[in-house]
């Protein structure tokens, strides 16, 4: 599936910034053999089109004392997934919550400071009458992040 919105230069910019987002536009310009202004306007265009949503550093949460990533798979009594999802959205430590097709109806990922909180959250979720069950999975070691893998074509 070829992406019509991006050409070779765009892709080159994205690839370079994926590796090191602080790469100066000048350096990318030199590599592509085009002007820095072109790179800048391409970058701005991709920001405007929301192809690029921003930039960030990846911080090791363990070193920052932010603790454990936990995934919870929840089974719900029929049509109540919106209700339960809205409640989960307000819970502390939430990274992501989603409806799901497959083994669970809702899946949520939390970042928790200590292990005890896992039990508390599980109990809290299972306390809802609309919830049939909640399975917990704890991420061990450092999860490998690979956001640089996107294929552009």
């Amino acid at each position: 599936m070829k992406n019509k919105n991006l050409d070779e230069i765009d892709i080159k910019i994205l690839r370079t910034l994926q590796k090191n987002v602080r790469t100066p536009f000048k350096e990318i310009a030199n590599q592509c053999n085009i002007s820095m202004d072109t790179i800048k306007s391409r970058y701005n265009k991709m920001m405007k089109n929301e192809v690029i949503r921003g930039s960030t550093i990846v911080v090791d949460p363990k070193k920052m004392g932010q603790g454990n990533l936990v995934i919870i798979g929840i089974k719900i009594v029929q049509q109540f997934s919106d209700l339960v999802m809205n409640i989960i959205k307000k819970m502390k430590g939430l990274c992501v919550v989603t409806k799901s097709i497959g083994q669970y109806d809702i899946e949520a990922i939390f970042l928790l400071e200590d292990i005890e909180q896992i039990g508390i959250i599980k109990d809290k979720i299972e306390d809802f009458p609309q919830v049939k069950s909640a399975d917990v999975g704890i991420f061990v070691d450092k999860p490998l992040l690979c956001p640089k893998n996107f294929e552009f074509e």
Binding site: L17, V51, T56, M64, L145
Partner: peptide, 11 residues
């Protein structure tokens, strides 16, 4: 090792 990486966020 506190900053592991830096990247552009693509939609």
């Amino acid at each position: 090792g506190i900053i592991v990486d830096s990247t552009v966020i693509i939609n």
